[in-house]
């Protein structure tokens, strides 16, 4: 398996709060990697380093190296906008735009334009035609298993959808930009079991084409969908290996305590 995300000596501070400590991890391509750990241990902080969302927090300081597809995304010459185009993110609470279903998906592609040549990394772009754009919207919605439910009401507000549908809309929205990596921060925590199951199926399906990283509080969810699992505790990466191994024979005492529920 080739590597997708390579993290070396990653440290994050919020003011004086040392939120991540010397994290080293290599996340493989086309697999699902789950991030687990107690609340406040730095899971969100970690994945928000991968698409540089932490840049938005003024008092946040990041040191170390994060490479995505061989490119150091914290390099001075790197355009953070390009980084985020390449690395999609789905948030804990569904956050569709208060616009139509169609507009939610079409917004970013319309801004980015169509890549004439993928290898040129967005240097040669042209505008999407109307037809191409609606094809792209349809493709993204199909990929997110939402098309059937919304195809007759594309012009309706995204706020009319149920929570689970909204979350799949957010996934479709991320897919429409055609990223290589998709980060999920507890994507199901606001959803019921049926909606959750749908998203889990989708995740497994997505890993064929994307590298998927998912933060979850739900141990069963990690066990069900993830190929590899990383356990964080108090800002440190305690253990990272095959999901099966983490859940059946964890190498660390802390991991075992956590997954057996003997720790908060």
């Amino acid at each position: 398996m080739s590597e997708s995300i390579f993290v070396k000596d990653l440290n994050v501070w919020f003011d004086k709060n040392h939120a991540l400590k010397d994290v080293n991890i290599t996340i493989p391509k086309n697999e699902i990697t789950a991030i687990i750990g107690p609340s406040g241990c730095g899971k969100s902080t970690f994945i928000r380093c991968i698409n540089r969302m932490n840049d938005l927090v003024t008092k946040c300081k990041v040191t170390g190296e994060v490479k995505v597809d061989g490119q150091d995304i914290y390099d001075k010459d790197v355009d953070v906008v390009e980084v985020r185009k390449n690395i999609g993110m789905v948030f804990q609470k569904p956050n569709p735009f208060p616009k139509s279903i169609f507009e939610n998906i079409a917004y970013a592609p319309r801004i980015h334009g169509k890549d004439e040549d993928k290898s040129l990394r967005g240097t040669k772009v042209s505008k999407y035609s109307k037809k191409e754009l609606s094809d792209l919207v349809e493709r993204s919605l199909r990929r997110a298993a939402l098309w059937g439910e919304v195809k007759d009401r594309m012009e309706k507000s995204a706020y009319e959808l149920s929570g689970g549908q909204q979350q799949r809309l957010c996934i479709a929205r991320a897919l429409a930009v055609d990223p290589q990596v998709i980060l999920f921060d507890e994507p199901c925590s606001a959803l019921d079991p049926i909606a959750t199951a749908k998203i889990e199926d989708l995740l497994v399906d997505l890993k064929k084409d994307y590298t998927v990283v998912i933060v979850t509080h739900n141990m069963q969810q990690a066990a069900r969908v993830a190929d590899k699992t990383a356990f964080f505790y108090l800002g440190e990466l305690i253990e990272f290996s095959e999901t099966k191994k983490i859940f059946e024979s964890p190498g660390e005492k802390l991991t075992e305590q956590y997954i057996t529920g003997r720790m908060g």
Binding site: N51, M53, L56, V81, E82, V83, R84, K85, N86, G88, M89, F91, K93, N95, P96, F97, P98, Y107, A108, I111, H112, C170, R173, A174, V177
Partner: peptide, 21 residues
């Protein structure tokens, strides 16, 4: 809500595009 700003920025749009749209 800042969640909408984050949603837009996470799609690789610029700050100004996020403000404008």
């Amino acid at each position: 809500p800042s969640s909408l700003r984050e949603a837009s920025l996470a799609l690789g749009t610029t700050k100004w595009q996020t403000i404008r749209h």
